[in-house]
């Protein structure tokens, strides 16, 4: 028994054991302070589906040897533009959601390709360059939001008629369409099957991709570029594929996020979008060289559950809100931990 426990801890890694312990402790406190567990858990599930695809976007870049995709806002911006086009053209409901994704795809492929070309020029500093590319493109797009030729009155400022609003409601478009899809109630639990199903489908597609010839080439070139080269693979090309795929997932991810949230936020809102996703996959057990779908699911679940339960529980126990502080400590601490861990690459 002791042996088995030790094995389990070794397999999960100490940080995960601590976080799982912390999440369990929160639920125990919630139960003992008579907080309703059901709604708490349901909210966690919604947040898993809401954030999952954004976390999944980390897998292709890590596998391709580019590291964590701190430039996720590049994909997010493409997704936002896609969503805006869909709204401008007044697609409603589920159709609006599908069209938002379809409009954003070509943009994401193009932007991802450019992003990859940049990263191929700065090998070894991809994450630093990615972070600042993300920041600067968010800032640059602020100008676009002001000048873009959208004229649907729902989107633009009421006064003046030009420039997109800060926050746009999706109520008349595709707000909550996935959340409501196949939502089932089960013993006090609300389970958003459609939302989770969509996340599952994306995971499955990424998993399938990594068992294709191309996917295996991406993975091999990420693990050992010299080896890949000797097998006739151009590592620059596989890195490009990884980055494009990640950017596309970032675009899809934000559309899913937005429909679940019910609003689209523009201007500086996407600035920090990468950090919770990075933190989640690291909590799930990924490192800079290796990430699996399993890491994505476990990480998203732990991270989001932590966030949703921490607020009500802590406000019960102590006066005041420390959930935001806890979120920042955990997410940034986790990133710091992962980046400083002695996981240097064996082959440069």
């Amino acid at each position: 028994m002791k042996e088995r426990l030790r094995n389990l801890i070794a397999q999960l890694g100490v940080p995960r054991v601590i976080i799982i312990g912390f999440v369990l402790a929160l639920f125990v406190i919630a139960y003992s302070t008579k907080l309703p567990i059901g709604p708490l858990f349901s909210a966690s599930l919604v947040r898993v589906g809401m954030n999952g695809v954004l976390v999944l976007a980390m897998v292709p870049t890590i596998s391709a040897g580019v590291g964590l995709n701190f430039g996720l806002p590049v994909g997010v911006l493409c997704g936002l533009v896609g969503a805006l086009i869909s709204m401008q053209m007044d697609f409603k409901g589920f159709m609006g959601f599908i069209m938002a994704i379809l409009f954003s795809l070509p943009l994401a492929v193009l932007a991802g390709w450019g992003y990859a070309a940049l990263l191929n020029k700065v090998k070894g500093q991809e994450m630093m360059v990615g972070t600042y590319l993300g920041f600067s493109s968010v800032a640059g797009m602020c100008i676009f939001w002001l000048l873009a030729p959208f004229d649907n009155p729902e989107l633009v400022w009421a006064i003046g008629g030009q420039g997109l609003r800060y926050t746009l409601t999706l109520d008349n478009h595709f707000g909550k369409v996935l959340n409501r899809l196949f939502q089932v109630s089960f013993g006090g639990l609300e389970i958003p099957l459609g939302l989770l199903g969509f996340f599952g489908l994306m995971c499955l597609l990424v998993h399938l991709f990594f068992s294709t010839k191309m996917g295996l080439a991406v993975k091999a070139a990420g693990a050992n570029p010299r080896f890949a080269q000797a097998s006739g693979i151009d590592p620059d090309r596989t890195r490009t594929v990884g980055v494009v795929l990640s950017t596309v997932l970032g675009a899809i991810g934000i559309v899913v996020y937005a429909q679940s949230y019910g609003f689209i936020q523009l201007y500086m809102a996407p600035l920090m979008m990468a950090f919770p996703a990075v933190a989640a996959i690291l909590i799930g057990g990924a490192n800079l060289q290796r990430a699996t779908i399993g890491h994505v699911i476990l990480g998203t679940f732990l991270f989001q559950t932590l966030l949703t339960t921490a607020l009500p529980v802590t406000s019960r126990v102590i006066q005041g809100d420390i959930s935001e502080v806890a979120r920042l400590i955990i997410s940034n601490g986790m990133i710091l931990y992962a980046l400083t861990r002695g996981d240097g690459r064996e082959t440069a």
Partner: peptide, 28 residues
């Protein structure tokens, strides 16, 4: 080519024997 740099160029150390054997044929 069987490389003189066995651990660097020759193998994917963390992958299985079978994937190492098949990889180059699959790709090329």
């Amino acid at each position: 080519f069987v490389s003189e740099d066995r651990r660097g160029t020759g193998l994917l150390l963390d992958e299985s024997i079978e994937d190492n054997i098949a990889f180059t044929s699959m790709q090329s």
